[in-house]
Computed example of a mutant assay.
Amino acid sequence: MTAAGLLALAAALFVMSATPGPAIMAVLARGMAHGLRPTLVFGLGIVAGDLCYLGFAMGGLGVVARELGWLFAVIRWAGAAYLVWMGLCCLLRPPARPVAVSAAPCRSRNFLSGLALTLGNPKVIGFYCGFLPAFVDLSALTPTDGLLAACVVGVVVYAVVVAYAWLAAGGRRLFSSGRAWRNANRTAGAVMIGAGAAVAAE
């Protein structure tokens, strides 16, 4: 894979990842509701989902992924339901600053949430199984090319997630009063519910 091809892949990924959609809405909502660290773990799940679809595309399984529409519909609906549930939790949370919970289950839950959201996101499926093969000859990729492509995917997608998470968490730190926290929780809850509705509608 040439340097020009890697740059083209990076540019396409950046546009796809940075364009507001369910994943970005979920990152913003989590950053506002839970802070930077849990959102970064959530972002790792998003990256893992992207890498799964990149592997499907490079392995010639894009057609299989498209044909298993019912499976991805189930994943999408489960992810949408989870986002709505998290949004309701934010809406009903007391105005006090949230108390940290056990790190291990929180990390695994955040990671799996990001993974499920990406696996059920039609935009991601369309990019890797439809758009990507149109400008990258996946059949001619060597193992080294595949590794380079995976590195580009990981770096670009996670950089976009980190940027949005940092902005959301920075806004979260501006709140100091109980009323401000209540308003922040309500905003985050509404965004999460909106993201869940967007995932279900796509």
Rank of each mutant, 00 (worst) to 15 (best):
R109M: 07
F111S: 04
L112S: 06
G114R: 10
G114L: 09
G114W: 11
L115K: 00
L117N: 03
L117G: 01
T118K: 01
T118D: 01
N121E: 03
N121R: 03
P122W: 07
K123G: 11
I125D: 05
I125M: 11
F127K: 13
Y128K: 13
Y128A: 15
C129R: 07
G130W: 03
F131S: 05
A134Y: 10
V136G: 03
V136Q: 13
L138W: 15
L138H: 11
L138R: 14
S139G: 02
S139M: 01
L141W: 01
T142N: 15
T144R: 13
G146S: 14
A150N: 08
A150P: 04
C151L: 12
V152C: 06
V152I: 07
G154R: 05
G154N: 07
V155D: 00
V155P: 00
V156H: 02
V157E: 10
V157L: 08
Y158L: 05
Y158I: 06
V160D: 05
V162C: 06
V162Y: 03
A165N: 12
A165T: 12
W166G: 04
W166H: 10
L167W: 12
L167D: 03
A168S: 15
A169Y: 07
G170P: 08
G171D: 06
R172G: 12
R172F: 09
R172Q: 14
R173Y: 00
R173M: 01
L174Y: 11
L174G: 15
F175C: 15
S177M: 02
S177D: 00
S177Q: 01
S177H: 00
G178A: 11
G178M: 09
G178W: 08
A180L: 05
A180N: 01
W181F: 15
W181L: 12
W181E: 10
R182P: 02
N183A: 14
N185V: 04
T187E: 00
A188W: 03
A188D: 06
